[in-house]
C-alpha cells in the first residue's frame, strides 16, 4: 500500500536555536489512524505544522499523495484538514460563516447541503447561526473540526483533540474519528493521553525531544514491549525468600506476603511452570494469584526514560 504521507529526514531548528525535530522519517498509510504520542514539547505540533505548511522546515522533505508539500503545495494542502489546539476564533463570526469561509479558502465552491450534513454529524446544526463567543469550549472544539472538514479533506490532522475536554466529549470525539476513518479519511492525531492512542489508533509513533523513538502497530507494540507480572499471594508470610527461588528474580513485598514475578509473555519459556514447582518444593502455600499486563503508558514511560 502506497503511503499517503511520506516524511524524509525532516529537521526543524527554530530561529531561537531550538532544535524541535531531528531527522524524522515516517510513512503514514492511507486510511489509518496514527497516534503521535509524546510529552509536551516533544515536537508533535511542529511536525504536523510542517506537513500542513504552517511552519517551514529546516531540512528534509514531505510528500503528500506523491506531491512535494512545498513545490506542489496546492495539491497537497487541498487534501489536508487541520484541527489545531484550542485557539481564539474571531468571536463575532457565526458558525455558518466560519465554515463557509474555511471551505472557500481551500478553493471549494459553496456546498450548503454538505456543510449542513457536516454540522449535523458534529451535533452543531442547532448552533448554525450562533456566534462563536456564545459557544462552550467543547462546542468550539467541534467548530474547529467542522472547519477542518469543510473542504472534504482526505487527510485529517488533529492536534491534541481531547486536551481539556470532558469525558463525554472525548468519547464523542473518538466516535467522530472512527466514523471518519470508515469513510476513508486518514487520521493523524497528536496526544499525550496514552489511553487515547490505545483506544483509537491503528499505529503509534512515539516522539520525544524531536526524535522519533518508534513507529509500530499498536497491537504489536503492546505485544512486543508488554511485560507481564504475576503476583503470588502467600497464605503464610515469609521473612526471606527460600534459596531455591533465588533464580527467578522475585520481588518480595515488605510484609512478606506477596511475591511478584516479571516475565516476558512472548518468550518461549516464561518460566511459570518452573516457578510453581519451586514454590511448591519450598513448602510455600498459595493463597491467590494475579496477572498484570503493562499498559501502553508503562511502555511509553519506559521508552521516554530509556532513550
Amino acid at each position: 500500500m502506497q503511503s499517503i504521507i511520506s516524511i524524509k529526514n525532516l529537521s526543524k531548528k527554530y530561529a531561537s536555536g531550538y532544535q524541535a525535530l531531528k531527522k524524522i522519517n515516517l510513512n503514514i498509510d492511507r486510511g489509518e489512524i496514527l497516534a503521535l504520542l509524546g510529552p509536551n514539547g516533544a515536537g508533535k505540533t511542529t511536525l504536523i505544522s510542517i506537513v500542513c505548511g504552517i511552519v517551514s522546515s529546516s531540512a528534509g522533505a514531505v510528500m503528500v499523495n506523491g506531491f512535494d508539500n512545498i513545490s506542489d503545495y496546492r495539491k497537497t494542502r487541498e487534501l489536508i484538514g487541520l484541527v489545531p489546539q484550542e485557539l481564539t476564533l474571531g468571536a463575532f463570526d457565526t458558525v455558518w460563516n466560519t465554515i463557509r469561509f474555511s471551505r472557500g479558502l481551500f478553493g471549494k465552491k459553496p456546498n450548503n447541503p454538505y456543510l449542513e450534513r457536516l454540522l449535523g454529524d458534529l451535533s452543531l446544526l442547532d448552533k448554525k447561526n450562533s456566534e462563536l463567543r456564545e459557544l462552550s469550549g467543547g462546542m468550539r472544539r467541534r467548530v474547529l473540526i467542522a472547519k477542518a472538514l469543510s473542504h472534504e479533506p482526505k487527510i485529517l490532522f488533529l492536534d491534541e483533540p481531547t486536551a481539556g475536554v470532558d469525558v463525554e466529549l472525548r468519547k464523542d470525539m473518538w466516535n467522530i474519528v472512527r466514523r471518519l476513518r470508515e469513510s476513508g479519511v486518514t487520521i493523524i492525531l497528536t496526544t499525550h493521553y496514552i489511553e487515547e492512542a490505545e483506544e483509537i489508533a491503528d499505529r503509534i509513533a512515539v516522539i520525544n525531544n524531536g526524535k522519533l523513538l518508534l513507529v509500530e502497530d499498536k497491537v504489536t507494540l503492546m505485544h512486543n514491549l508488554g511485560k507481564k507480572q504475576l503476583a503470588v499471594e502467600l497464605r503464610t508470610p515469609v521473612t526471606t525468600l527460600p534459596q531455591s527461588l533465588s533464580t527467578f528474580a522475585l520481588k518480595l513485598s515488605d510484609d512478606g506476603s506477596k511475591l511478584t514475578y516479571t516475565y516476558d509473555s512472548m518468550s518461549e519459556s516464561a518460566g511459570i511452570n518452573a516457578l510453581f514447582q519451586a514454590i511448591n518444593q519450598a513448602g510455600l502455600e498459595l493463597k491467590d494469584l494475579q496477572v498484570m499486563q503493562s499498559s501502553l503508558e508503562d511502555i511509553f514511560v519506559d521508552l521516554v526514560r530509556n532513550k
Binding site: C52, G53, I54, R74, T76, L82, L87, L105, G107
Partner: peptide, 18 residues
C-alpha cells in the same frame, strides 16, 4: 494582524493559496 494575534491565521497558511 488580528488573525495573526488570535492564531486563526493557521487556516490561511494551511490552505492551498498563494
Amino acid at each position: 494582524f488580528f488573525p495573526k494575534f488570535t492564531g486563526s491565521i493557521y487556516e490561511v497558511h494551511s490552505a492551498p493559496i498563494s
